[in-house]
């Protein structure tokens, strides 16, 4: 079975001489939920731009479901749905017209297009906005409209470039649910995001790109397994003593009711709890101080540079 996306030696040098991509290789399996992470200017959007033909590549090959974009770009485009970072529709058109036009560009007859519009607007909570001009939509609605537009030709690979930027938490969660649903139904999803917890909770595999190069490409589980040290914040039921000593663990007092514990790889969290209890400290809640993926992300970028 061909990969949903296969990139080999992809390079992009802009007219001003800036090398945005330095020969990246990337494979995304069919049905995967894949995250492409990287700081601003790392090359994420350039990579997506090349895949969906908005940017001309300098060298390399891109295959979408085995179809080489140099040999059959229209064939490759059929498999792709793209949700760009910036709004790119005519704000004076209605939601329905934007979707009808996009369906038409893929050769989908009007009757089929209208049925699909019903389905996706309902799923994305935009049914009531069907006849509304796009400029009247909120930021979150505009983003959902772009998702509906990207799905109107029912692509097998959906690429989302920062889909939840500027979207409130409630809306973001419902969007996550929708993306999980279509992924479970078989659509491969490739996501770029700045919200690292988003990648951690949604995606199975991840590639980190920096300065136009892939720094790592692995499963999220593997990546997090490499994390050697985590910091936990523990909330105590009673006021804490001024100094806290827990043999075998690095623990420090943050304030009267809060302490911080460093857990090395291989250390047992239950043992820490047990020792704190023996010291007369009762813990009522606990949380990870930093997003684990964020720690890993920063550490990998530091290593790369």
């Amino acid at each position: 079975m061909p990969h949903a996306l296969e990139i080999r030696g992809l390079q992009k040098v802009y007219a001003n001489g800036f090398q945005a991509l330095k020969g990246i290789d990337l494979e995304v399996a069919q049905g995967d939920f894949f995250a492409l992470l990287g700081p601003n200017g790392a090359g994420k959007s350039t990579t997506i731009g090349v895949i969906c033909s908005l940017i001309n590549k300098t060298a390399g090959t891109v295959r979408v479901k085995g179809v080489d974009i140099d040999e059959d770009f229209p064939g490759a485009k059929r498999h792709l749905g793209v949700v760009p970072q910036e709004f790119n529709f005519n704000v004076f058109e209605t939601v329905e017209d934007i979707l009808i036009h996009q369906a038409g560009y893929y050769g989908i007859p009007l009757k089929t297009a209208l049925e699909r519009i019903d389905t996706y607007l309902t799923k994305l909570g935009l049914s009531e906005k069907r006849k509304t001009r796009a400029r009247m939509l909120s930021g979150g609605m505009k983003r959902r409209l772009m998702i509906a537009r990207a799905l109107i030709h029912e692509p097998s690979v959906l690429i989302l470039d920062e889909p939840t930027a500027g979207v409130d938490i409630e809306m973001r969660r419902s969007m996550y649910e929708f993306l999980r649903e279509i992924n479970e139904a078989g659509t491969t999803i490739i996501l770029t995001t700045h919200y690292l917890e988003e990648a951690e909770s949604l995606c199975r595999n991840i590639a980190i790109i920096n300065h136009g190069e892939i720094v790592t490409n692995t499963s999220i589980k593997n990546l997090l397994r490499e994390l050697h040290r985590e910091t936990f914040i523990l909330d105590a039921r009673e006021p804490l003593p001024e100094t806290i000593q827990v043999p075998g663990f690095e623990v420090s007092r943050v304030d009267e009711f809060c302490l911080e514990a460093q857990i090395e790889q291989g250390q047992d969290l239950a043992e820490l709890m047990s020792r704190l209890h023996e010291s007369g400290i009762s813990i009522i809640s606990m949380r990870n101080r930093e997003n684990r993926l964020e720690q890993m992300f920063v550490s990998l970028l530091e290593q790369a540079s």
């Binding site: 033909s53 910036e86 790119n88 560009y105 893929y106």
Partner: peptide
């Protein structure tokens, strides 16, 4: 100007 030309460019329309 409003980038909606991208709707056409990403599609297979010849």
């Amino acid at each position: 100007f409003n980038n909606s030309i991208e709707e056409l460019l990403v599609s297979p329309t010849p």
